[in-house]
């Protein structure tokens, strides 16, 4: 296997991670919207929206912004 195609395989695996994370974010966003339209209880809404927002924030910070590179370094992979 040449170095070139090895790199390409690495890239497509990383790109797949991106799609998966995006899918989760999209589902959560749509869920937020549906809950906000349908739910009448203010307290429940605040709780559910907070949970969803924190989950989305966590996914972006961990998978898109690679927060772990702060202590692990990027070059180490």
């Amino acid at each position: 296997m040449s170095k070139q195609s090895h790199a390409a395989a690495g890239e497509s695996a990383d790109q797949r991670t991106g799609f998966t994370v995006f899918l989760i974010l999209a589902v959560l966003t749509i869920a937020e919207y549906i809950v906000a339209v349908g739910l009448d209880s203010k307290v429940a809404l605040v709780v559910m929206l907070s949970v969803a927002a924190i989950a989305k924030c966590w996914a972006i910070v961990v998978y898109f912004m690679h927060v772990s590179r702060l202590w692990r370094g990027e070059e180490a992979h």
Partner: peptide
């Protein structure tokens, strides 16, 4: 984007 993740429910969805 993260900021908007919090601002969207704060401004649009809460009631």
């Amino acid at each position: 984007d993260v900021v908007w993740v919090f601002f969207y429910p704060t401004l649009y969805l809460l009631k």
